[in-house]
């Protein structure tokens, strides 16, 4: 196995606060990797660094062994990085179909309409293609963000809390989809609070606390790691 994404001693400082202090982690190709940790641990910040929205104060992001620190946000999509957002960032006044179509067109795929249609079918949104995206219920909106990210055919897909606001059936649908993506060879980095989802789909989990990785391992290892339990439940008094 080779690491598709390598994060090497990445630190991010906001004013006087260290949001990330020397994060090291690998994401292996064609796996689902979970990134968990208490609120304020720095998960979204790490996502922003990976897709170039925020420059790290120090450290290196490598994709396929190539440093991508200096590559602009809009060019990272062409390298195969796609993402969704914790606070939905849909094109709310465009239709569901156009949301995905814009992404396909920006990626410069052949026949963007076909690609868009294909992604909507995959996510089960094809029957709602003509609805204005802003009018979708949360669950469908989250799935639409995934569909849009997939339309640019990413190799690495960053999902930021895709299950929040989803009902049980939709969460189930999402977990099936994640496994499907993995079988298609897409690498997924998943930030999620729904632990049963994380534990059931992930191959590898990294736990972030107070800006650094405190544990990495399989779901089983993580669940029984005392340090992780302490991070979540607080130190024993």
């Amino acid at each position: 196995m080779t690491a598709l994404l390598e994060v090497r001693s990445v630190a991010v400082r906001f004013g006087g606060v260290m949001a990330l202090s020397g994060v090291d982690l690998d994401v292996q190709e064609a796996t689902i990797t979970g990134l968990i940790g208490p609120n304020g641990a720095g998960k979204t910040t790490l996502f922003n660094v990976i897709c170039g929205i925020r420059q790290p104060t120090s450290g290196v992001i490598m994709l396929d062994d190539i440093e991508i620190n200096r590559i602009a946000t809009q060019k990272r999509s062409a390298l195969g990085i796609g993402r969704t957002f914790q606070r939905l960032e849909l094109f709310t006044t465009l239709s569901v179909f156009d949301n995905v179509l814009v992404a396909a067109e920006l990626a410069g795929v052949n026949d963007p309409r076909a690609v868009a249609h294909e992604q909507l079918l995959l996510l089960g949104l094809a029957d709602r293609a003509d609805i204005i995206a802003g009018e979708l219920p949360t669950g469908s909106a989250r799935l639409l963000e995934v569909a849009r990210a997939l339309a640019s055919h990413p190799r690495l897909l960053l999902l930021d809390e895709p299950a929040s606001g989803l009902d049980d059936a939709e969460t189930q649908q999402l977990s099936v989809l994640l496994r499907q993506l993995k079988s298609l060879g897409i690498t997924v980095l998943l930030v999620e609070h729904d632990m049963s989802l994380i534990m059931s789909v992930c191959d590898q989990i990294h736990v972030l606390n107070l800006g650094s990785v405190i544990a990495s391992g399989t779901p089983d290892q993580i669940q029984h790691n005392p340090e992780v339990i302490d991070a979540y439940l607080g130190a024993v008094r």
Binding site: P38, N39, Y232, L233, G234, A235, V236, R237
Partner: peptide
Amino acid sequence: VEQFARTV
């Protein structure tokens, strides 16, 4: 309100 249950 606390995430770190043991603490409180």
